[in-house]
């Protein structure tokens, strides 16, 4: 049975605890330094919560954290998270420490401290926006039909490994169709044997919910 420790945090912690409770083979230990929230967690989720300061080695002793498999630090305070992970790792020999970080720069800094994994929602959000911006850059135009359920996207092929590749070999997703390819002044209705060329503009028909998936698929061939 895997021993997982969740230290501090509020509603984010409640969500993660709830998800872990659904997984078999996990022994969950919960610590929280906010008395009111510790009570809320016990009342709403039915889990035992140690109301304790998760940066103090004494709290770890009481909660039986020695050699736990995973320690997850979810405080709003980055210093609290870093120190509690260090107590877990250095004194209580926890195998893996995971921390959230409010300041995105702490993703790198915590790594230097020896914390195994650091998650910053701001960092993830930025990376996601950056990725989508890059993807959208290649999107020439898009239009929707049937009350926005169906989307027609035009994707420009530029610096892509898809150039000179044959359509049937690229594993194009089956939830989308290539309606046509604009090549210079020509319009090509593609078949499996169609070979892509640089600067092709690929017109794709897909359900709106799958648009990003298709664009991400094409994007993975970028040089």
């Amino acid at each position: 049975m895997k021993k997982v420790v969740i230290a501090n945090g509020t509603y984010q912690a409640a969500y993660i605890i709830r998800r872990f409770l659904d997984i078999k083979g996990i022994k969950l230990i919960v610590l929280n330094d906010d008395e009111a929230f510790a009570t809320y967690l016990t009342m709403s989720l039915g889990v035992g919560v140690f109301f304790a300061d998760a940066t103090k080695p004494d709290s770890f002793k009481v909660a039986g954290i020695y050699e736990a498999d995973v320690f997850i630090a979810l405080s709003e305070n980055d210093i609290t998270n870093a120190i509690s992970c260090l107590v877990a790792k250095q004194i209580f020999k926890v195998k893996k420490t995971i921390s959230v970080a409010k300041d995105p720069r702490n993703v790198e800094i915590f790594g230097h401290f020896g914390i195994d994994s650091v998650i910053s929602s701001t960092f993830i959000l930025f990376e996601r926006i950056k990725h989508e911006t890059e993807v959208m850059d290649k999107l020439v135009s898009t239009m929707s039909i049937d009350n926005s359920k169906i989307v027609i996207s035009e994707f420009r092929l530029e610096n892509s490994k898809l150039s000179n590749m044959v359509l049937k070999d690229i594993g194009f997703p089956n939830f989308a169709n290539i309606a046509c390819i604009f090549r210079g002044n020509d319009t090509i209705i593609p078949s499996g044997k169609t070979v892509f060329q640089n600067f092709d503009r690929i017109v794709i028909v897909t359900a709106a919910k799958n648009q990003m998936k298709v664009l991400n698929f094409l994007h993975q061939f970028d040089n």
């Binding site: 103090k56 080695p57 120190i83 107590v87 004194i91 800094i109």
Partner: peptide, 27 residues
């Protein structure tokens, strides 16, 4: 925390810190 920052990120090699809770000295 600040001592770790100064050492790991800014390369300061002579740092002295005060600690009240001696159980944290192991960190």
């Amino acid at each position: 925390y600040i001592a770790l920052l100064l050492e790991k990120m800014y390369g300061i090699s002579d740092i002295t810190i005060s600690i009240k809770d001696e159980t944290k000295a192991a960190l």
